[in-house]
């Protein structure tokens, strides 16, 4: 994978992101990976998330973010990858990366990219949860025969 902006149903790879973010003089590389958490909700424990998006517009907004980060932070290489469809707990749903000459700009760029992605890219998630089991009643105890 060599593109900076990518929306896919397939798993995301940190190693693939690192390959895109490598290059001569790029001494600071920051990669953020967002994973699905098994949160407790009123409907039960989250087991997966369903992501949907207005994908054509999402691509266009992500490309704008890439250009802005390049201009503002001097980020030379950028990764903005997001999955959609069904994503299970523990899997990576988003990968954001920035490669710059030095660490400070790379951290700033990566932070900017993930915050803006969450705020301005038309992607939504719906939680799917497994209802909690009802607590079992204590086992029925037969009354023992009176001794003696």
């Amino acid at each position: 994978m060599t593109v900076s902006v990518h929306l896919t149903r397939r798993p995301l790879s940190v190693a693939a992101a690192m390959r895109v973010l490598s290059g001569p003089g790029l001494g600071g590389v920051v990669v953020f990976a967002g994973r699905v958490r098994p949160d407790r909700t009123p409907a039960g424990r989250v087991t997966k998330l369903e992501y949907e998006g207005d994908l054509a517009l999402a691509r266009s907004v992500l490309a704008d973010l890439e250009r802005t980060a390049q201009r503002r932070f001097g980020a030379v290489r950028i990764v903005l990858w997001h999955r959609f469809g069904t994503i299970k707990v523990g899997e990576v749903s988003v990968l954001v990366g920035a490669a710059c000459g030095h660490r400070s700009a790379a951290f700033d760029a990566a932070r900017y990219l993930i915050e803006e992605l969450k705020r301005s890219v038309p992607i939504w998630k719906t939680e799917r949860a497994r209802p909690a089991r009802r607590p079992r009643r204590p086992p029925y105890r037969r009354r023992g025969r009176a001794s003696g």
Binding site: D54, H82, S93, L117, K118, P122, I123, W124, K125
Partner: peptide, 10 residues
Amino acid sequence: FAVHPPYGGG
């Protein structure tokens, strides 16, 4: 015409 509720990616 598309209706976009608040976004929730990431």
